Each structure stands twice: as C-alpha cells, then as structure tokens.
Amino acid sequence: MRDALWAALKTVNDPELHRDLVSLGMIERAEVGGGVAQVKVNLTTPACPLKGQIEGDVRSAVLAVPGIKEVVVTFGAMVRTGGQPALPGVKHVLLVGSGKGGVGKSSVAVNIAASLARDGARVGLLDADVYGPSVAHMLGRSAERVTANAERKMQPLEAHGIRFLSMANLSPAGQALVWRGPMLHSAIQQFLKDAAWGDLDYLIVDLPPGTGDVQLSLTQTIQVTGAVIVTTPQDVALIDAARAIDMFRKASVPVLGVVENMSYFVAPDTGLTYDLFGRGGSQKLGGLPLLGEVPLDMEVRKDSDAGEPAVLAHPDSAAAQALTGVARALAGRVSVQALADLPDQLPVV
C-alpha cells in the first residue's frame, strides 16, 4: 500500500510550480497504517498562498487509494534558492522600489516583511533609504541604537519577528545626511556585508525612490532574486514606475510584480468605494503580475505611526488582508523564480 500511496502523491501538482510534489522533493513523509495515511508536505515557503488547495488535492488523491480511509496532512516549509545564496545565510534578497516618493513604498515593505515573518519565515528588513529612513519608526524602534557583536559586525535590531537595520538607528535623530555617491555606496556595502544577518529566508530591502546610487550599488554588489514595484494608479506615478522597471531590467534584476497602493478608498460611514487616484493603472506597466491592490486606509497610517505594521495590528482590515495577499503572492513568485534553476528531479527528503 505504501507504493500506491506514493504513486497517488505523484499525481498531485504544486499549483504554481506545475510539477508533482514527489519530484519536487516536497513530500517529507508518507506512511500508512490501519487505513490511516500520514503525509507531511514541505512547502516551498511558509507563506504559501495555495496551501489550502495543496492540502485538498493531497486528500483527494490519497483517499482514492484502496484501503485508505483517512488522511492526516501536516505541513513544514523549506525556502529554496536556485543558486548560491545572495549573502552568507540569506536565501533571497528582494528589493521594494518605486519611481517616485509618496506612494507608500516603505509601508508596503514593512508590511510584506511582517506578514512573511508572521507566516513563519525568517525575515530581515534593510532600510536602504539612507536620506529618509522610516523603517525604524514604523517598527516602533526609532530610539534604539545599533551595536556590534563579538566579531565587530553590526547586530541587526529586532521587532515583530523581523531583523532590521536602518540609518535612523545609527545617526542622531533629525540630523540630515549630506553624502555623495561614494559614501552611500560604502554605507550600503556595510549594511549588506558587515552586518550579522544570520540565517534568513528573505531579506527585504526598502529602496529610496527613484533610480539613483543606492539602486546601482545594490544591484552591482549582490545577487538579487527580484524586485517589487510600488505605485499608485495615477499616470504621474506610473510614468516614474515605468522608469524604475526599466532600470531593474537594465541591471538584469527580474521584476516579480507590481503593488498598486492607495488603489481605492472605502468611506467608513457609507461603505461607498471611491477611486481617488483612478484604479487599475498598474495594468499599463507592461503586463507585469499584479501582486495586489491595497486600499487607502487611515488605520495603516495610524499603525505605522504607532510602530506596529497593519497586518499585525488590524489583520482583518481590508488593507491588511490586501497586504497579506501581496506578501504571499510575492513568496509564490519567488518560489517560481527559484524553480527555474533547480534540477528536474529533486531528492525525496
């Protein structure tokens, strides 16, 4: 019966990777006794957006095996990388960028990181907006200072299950940094290579707006898995978002998708929906995958000012659910990206 159980599992495909769970090495354990099958599936990310579908497909396939009356499905997760890690211990570096400021890029980056961490991933967050750092404030840790460990490497701070570094925790509050390009390059190098990030599934990088020195330093320094573009729906934002996309493509960084932020507003008193900045404008960006439409929500702003990401403070709100969907869709895109460099047949764990 064990052979029949494994044969049944081989008919179940991962909905995003379009290969069966057995050849992908996602079945950690499959045993049967007394008519009860025990199956453990290792997902390609803790934030798998299609976990429920996979569980249902496994149950249907296994219950079709003669003699099996019950199926117990459990899950683990193992984030894979198609090649060498971007940094020691860091599997994927994901850039969150925008063509212009004011589109909510940092808020999206913080909530992506918080959502992935809540789902069980090991997550780091680098605030690469050196001139206008905001991540520390949004995580409620702006008063803390970065220290060095015994190896004289910067020790990232921690908040909400996220390891993070920000210039706000290295320089006096309110002090302007008047730096030229080489100094920016040196700072980014230190954030990446002189910090004790430890083992991470994802390092989210909140970029400054535009297409300047920081973006070039990052793309030329390490292997980046991909980038996310944050924009609002109106044309003035989309024009600049298109420039950011062009920059990433010239730097050979895959653009994994677009987040349309402030996509619409639902009036709390009437429930009516207003497209304040238009809606659906991200469809003009060359057919890139839409990771999600995030509504304009006052709670997101309040939560950011209070130092707690909206996905944690108000997880049932429309904005938080949209941001959670963005994070999970991004994790799925990363898994698909990694598969391109994996062998056709992976060993069974």
Rank of each mutant, 00 (worst) to 15 (best):
279 R>W: 06
205 V>Q: 06
242 A>E: 03
218 L>K: 09
238 L>T: 08
271 G>K: 00
216 L>C: 00
195 A>D: 00
202 Y>K: 08
236 V>A: 08
209 P>K: 02
224 V>H: 10
261 N>W: 13
230 V>M: 05
193 K>L: 13
254 P>G: 10
209 P>S: 10
270 T>G: 02
213 D>V: 01
212 G>W: 08
206 D>G: 15
204 I>Q: 01
281 G>F: 03
196 A>R: 09
232 T>F: 00
259 V>G: 03
231 T>K: 01
193 K>S: 12
278 G>S: 05
256 L>F: 05
268 P>A: 13
212 G>E: 08
219 T>A: 05
261 N>Y: 12
251 A>I: 07
251 A>W: 08
274 Y>C: 07
268 P>Y: 12
253 V>C: 11
177 L>S: 13
247 M>K: 02
232 T>C: 04
270 T>E: 03
190 Q>E: 10
247 M>E: 01
179 W>G: 09
225 T>H: 03
191 F>A: 04
248 F>E: 09
195 A>T: 10
195 A>S: 14
266 V>Y: 12
203 L>N: 03
188 I>V: 15
287 G>H: 06
258 V>H: 05
260 E>Q: 08
283 Q>A: 15
185 H>W: 06
210 G>N: 12
234 Q>L: 06
280 G>S: 00
279 R>N: 13
184 L>P: 12
277 F>I: 14
255 V>A: 04
286 G>C: 12
269 D>F: 01
224 V>F: 06
248 F>I: 05
187 A>E: 14
273 T>P: 07
190 Q>W: 07
242 A>T: 01
282 S>W: 07
250 K>F: 02
215 Q>H: 11
218 L>Q: 11
242 A>G: 04
187 A>G: 10
198 G>C: 14
257 G>A: 02
248 F>R: 08
188 I>Q: 09
281 G>H: 02
209 P>H: 08
256 L>G: 04
213 D>T: 00
257 G>P: 01
275 D>M: 02
235 D>R: 07
253 V>I: 11
239 I>R: 13
231 T>N: 01
252 S>G: 04
212 G>K: 10
252 S>K: 15
200 L>H: 06
255 V>Q: 03
260 E>A: 05
226 G>Y: 02
280 G>A: 00
232 T>P: 06
277 F>K: 13
177 L>K: 12
182 P>H: 07
